[in-house]
Each structure stands twice: as C-alpha cells, then as structure tokens.
C-alpha cells in the first residue's frame, strides 16, 4: 500500500436496504479523490432482508452485526474498525442513497483546507435539494436553538448523518457514541471536547427506499429524548 495515500473510511450503516445498498457502494467505489484511498465499510445492522448477502458480493468491507443495535451502534462499529485500522478520516454515508457519493469530495476538500475536525454536510445552508417535511424542519430548528444554548455553536442541519471526522474525533467516538438518534447529541460531545466543527452545504436526495429511523409516530419521543440527551451530554462532558 502506498504510504502517501491518506485513508478514508466510508461507513455505511444499513438496515433493510437491499434495494439501494449496491448502488450506494458502487457510487462510492467510482469516486476518485487525489491523494486518498476510499474504503466503503457497510455495517449491516441485523437486517431481515438480503442486505448482507448483496454486500458480500461487493468490493467492500462488511461488518455483519448479529443483533440490531440501532443506527448509532452500527455507525460506531464502523468507527471502531476505522480506528483499529488507523484511518485518517471517516465519513458516514446513509445506506438509503440520501447522501450522494459525489458530495463526499466537497467534505474532504473542506477538511483538508480548514483543518476542522468535523465537517457536517448540510441541507439547510443554501436550501438546495431535498428539504424534509415541515414538521421535521420545525424540530430541527428547535434543536438548533437548544444545541446553541448549551454549546454556543450554531449547526443548522443537526440531524444530518453526512459527516466527515478526522482521526482525533475517531478516537473519541469509537469509545463513546450514542446508540439511538446520535447526530444532535454528538454535536455537544464534539464541542465540549474542543473539536472544530464546520458545516457546509451539500445536495441531498429524498431517501430512495427503506424507512427513516424516525417515523412520524415517535417524533415526539424523539424530540424529548434528544433534548434530554443534549442537556445531559452537556453536563457529562463539560470541563
């Protein structure tokens, strides 16, 4: 392996994504970014469909969880793999095709230029592409103020899972990452650890299939749980 290459782990949590997963992985494999080596890592979160069987035949790493851990637990498995194998960066790309592979290079470029620890791909800076429903946007605006209250930083698209992290952050999250709905509360973890967070506009698509981890039925539960988690993550990790 060439030592001059930096290694990027593309972590793809997948739960019942048999219709999209091959396309997502192949899109990632088709990307070339100078100076970087991209390795797709699919974490199959105990899918009941053929996700695992499909991924086995693709040119990527498959981490096959024997029990369902939830999105955060699945992503963390990928982080652990990337950490053990000394990756320079890790990026989370959802298995449903919401995060176009073409946008990965934008995040990488930003990380290389600004040296920020975390780059979040955001739908809401320029408001292009898929924008989610009104209810969700309201929730996200509320979380934006809630996160700002405790961390002092403004993240517009705080539920975006499309994030690039460097190896310093990788060391933290591989040991400590929330299981359920990890995105908003991990921002508090990052800011309390003193990491630099940058948010840049990306174009997202509506999910190509599969189900969101947040159904309308438990949106209220989601808001209460996440608000509480943000508050307690703030208390737990502040110095």
């Amino acid at each position: 392996m060439n030592k001059n290459f930096k290694k990027l782990a593309v972590i793809i949590p997948a739960y019942n994504e048999q219709d999209n997963i091959a396309m997502v992985v192949n899109d990632i494999l088709s990307i070339k970014y100078p100076g970087f080596q991209l390795l797709p890592i699919v974490v199959n979160d105990c899918s009941q469909d053929n996700t695992a069987a499909i991924v086995e035949n693709l040119d990527c790493i498959l981490l096959d969880l024997p029990v369902n851990l939830g999105i955060g637990g699945a992503v963390q498995t990928g982080y652990k793999y990337a950490y053990e194998h000394n990756f320079d960066y890790a990026i989370q790309v959802d298995g449903d095709g919401q995060h176009p592979a073409g946008e990965i290079s934008k995040l990488l470029l930003e990380a290389e230029q600004t040296q920020a620890n975390i780059i979040i791909g955001s739908r809401f800076i320029t408001n292009n592409g898929f924008q989610s429903t009104a209810m969700r946007r309201f929730g996200i605006v509320f979380l934006k103020s809630w996160i700002k209250l405790f961390s002092g930083i403004t993240i517009y698209d705080n539920t975006s899972g499309f994030r690039l992290i460097d190896n310093e952050v990788l060391e933290v999250v591989q040991a400590n990452y929330p299981d359920e709905y990890p995105e908003p509360e991990s921002i508090l973890l990052f800011s309390n650890k003193g990491f630099q967070i940058k948010e840049i506009p990306v174009l997202m698509k509506a999910r190509q299939g599969g189900e969101s981890s947040i159904t309308s039925f438990n949106q209220l539960y989601y808001m209460i749980k996440v608000s509480l988690a943000i508050f307690y993550t703030y208390l737990r990790t502040k110095k």
């Binding site: 359920e180 539960y221 209460i224 749980k225 509480l228 988690a229 307690y232 208390l235 737990r236």
Partner: peptide
C-alpha cells in the same frame, strides 16, 4: 440526573423518571 450523568441510567429509560 446524577445517574444519567455518570452513565448508569440511559436517557431512554430516564425519560419516564424525569
């Protein structure tokens, strides 16, 4: 609150208590 902060009680179970 102390239990949650120390990580002995997970938020999803704490919601009921809070």
């Amino acid at each position: 609150s102390r239990l949650i902060i120390k990580g002995k009680l997970r938020e999803e179970y704490a919601i009921f208590w809070v």
